[in-house]
């Protein structure tokens, strides 16, 4: 019986060694060791080098764009994702099943396809862009385009996280509020919304985390101009193309650290959400 960290109770089910072995091997070779390469390489840089690469003016603009646009997109998705989840859970209408299936489109559609499609819509001569251009509203090739793309990417996260919680919310709590004299609006604001808040926040956090690192959907519609409309992942690619592997790695390391911090926060959120639900 394997000892130490992986100590387990005796069980008559076999295969622990084999399956753990495969899992740990695959995890190490495919995920952990390659990821560590980023940090090891970064560690090999001097502090000044690292700061020059990871915190250069250009990099800072890129972070600002990536995180800023992701935050705006997550906020938009919070509102409309909640609306969508509400409508899907509470109401019946023709074509509801199709709509529900469509919500997962961003999961299934390749990012590059989404990218060129969104550009076709919002470019100055695009399906929608052509109506907005005369009004002086530019979407494609500006940071606004990035936000639009990230809304697309993050929508399913909010909807799918909120839906089950909304569905689970028993009708009796709303009926109780009604018998106590609350209007429908009061019931929504004071009873329903607080109950789904943890799920909503978790969904937003997931959407945000995904949006920060998004590449394919964004690079076609963003202007990709340094300091203006260049997202952080693009900056990494640009550095690589200029053979500045160290610079690219420094930025990647920064993004990884933030991603892991987000991941940690999301895990905490999900634990919190689970604890509240099991009341």
């Amino acid at each position: 019986m394997p000892k130490g960290v992986l100590q387990r109770r005796r069980s008559i089910i076999p295969g622990f060694g084999l399956t753990m072995g495969i899992t740990i091997f695959a995890l190490s070779v495919i995920v952990l060791i390659p990821l560590s390469a980023v940090f090891v390489t970064t560690a090999g840089m001097s502090f000044d080098e690292f700061v020059a690469a990871a915190l250069s003016k250009r990099a800072l603009s890129a972070y600002r764009l990536s995180f800023g646009a992701a935050a705006v997109a997550a906020a938009v998705n919070a509102v409309f994702g909640l609306l969508t989840a509400w409508v899907l859970v509470r109401y019946e209408f023709t074509g509801k099943r199709v709509v529900s299936a469509l919500v997962d489109l961003p999961f299934a559609l390749p990012t590059a396809v989404a990218g060129i499609a969104l550009t076709a819509l919002y470019a100055p001569n695009g399906w929608i862009g052509r109506w907005l251009a005369p009004l002086g509203v530019d979407i494609a090739f500006t940071p606004r385009g990035v936000v639009v793309a990230l809304i697309f990417v993050g929508l399913p996260f909010v909807v799918r996280t909120v839906e089950p919680v909304l569905a689970d919310l028993g009708a009796d709590v709303e009926e109780a509020a009604a018998t106590l004299g609350a209007s429908r609006r009061q019931t929504f604001v004071r009873v329903i919304l607080p109950a789904i808040a943890p799920a909503l926040v978790t969904g937003c956090a997931l959407a945000f985390a995904r949006a920060v690192g998004e590449y394919g959907s964004v690079i076609f519609i963003a202007g990709n101009m340094p300091f203006r409309s260049e997202i952080a992942p693009l900056l990494i690619v640009v550095q690589l193309e200029q053979f500045n592997t160290a610079g690219a790695t420094a930025i990647a390391a920064t993004m990884l650290v933030i991603s892991f911090a987000l991941l940690f926060a999301i895990n905490l959120l999900q634990v919190w959400q689970r604890r509240l639900r099991s009341a």
């Binding site: 028993g170 009796d172 709590v173 009926e175 109780a176 009873v191 607080p194 109950a195 808040a197």
Partner: peptide, 10 residues
């Protein structure tokens, strides 16, 4: 209510 329907978050 049968399952009390208390507001969990209050």
């Amino acid at each position: 209510f049968q399952q009390y329907a208390l507001f969990r978050h209050m």
